[in-house]
């Protein structure tokens, strides 16, 4: 099984350890992995162009599964797309609000609306959402089938094997 791990420079530093751990575990379970890293800048006015640029790349035939580890790689197209939502704000729009929340101009609001729309499209088409907390999972459950799972067991989930430690196994949010 080939699994493509996708991440962006925007949050790459936060995810580097997670990424390496996941890659090692997947390999240990017999899956091949490769990592793509795309540039991203939250600087207005290029945000929408960048989201569209991710969308234009075709990764559908490269791997059996694609895991988006940081936004906006969830914009990439893949029939078996798995999204991960971290605890402190899974979505791009959260990053946008952190950066521009204090600036309440109409043009900024318009861009924010469009980001929200794009995220909804990208999220709804995902096969699975992996959350690292129940809080986030509850929030995401309305848009994508989400499970709560820790990083250690994400690998098991991806390759379709049961976790060795049932205490850490994924639990579907009702």
């Amino acid at each position: 099984m080939q699994i493509l791990l996708a991440t962006s420079t925007e949050q790459f530093h936060n995810r580097e350890i997670e990424l390496e751990s996941l890659r090692d575990q997947l390999q240990a379970l017999g899956a091949s992995t490769d990592v793509l890293v795309l540039p991203f800048s939250m600087e207005d006015p290029h945000v929408l162009a960048q989201l569209a640029s991710y969308r234009m790349l075709d990764v559908r035939h490269f791997a059996d599964c694609m895991v988006s580890l940081s936004p906006p790689t969830h914009m990439l197209r893949h029939p078996n797309k798995v999204l991960t939502f971290s605890e402190d704000g899974p979505q791009m729009v959260d990053s946008w609000d952190r950066k521009y929340g204090a600036i309440e101009t109409k043009p900024m609001q318009a861009i924010r609306n469009l980001i929200v729309h794009a995220e909804q499209v990208a999220t709804e088409e995902a096969a699975l959402g992996i959350c690292f907390s129940h809080h986030v999972a509850r929030r995401m459950q309305s848009v994508v089938n989400s499970v709560v799972i820790d990083a250690t067991n994400l690998a098991f989930q991806l390759v379709g094997k049961k976790a060795k430690n049932p205490r850490l196994a994924g639990k579907v949010v009702a």
């Binding site: 006015p45 929408l48 162009a49 569209a52 043009p107 318009a110 469009l114």
Partner: peptide, 13 residues
Amino acid sequence: FDEFPLIALSDQI
């Protein structure tokens, strides 16, 4: 309003 950034995006491209 929501259309304006998309027009700007098209122009940029």
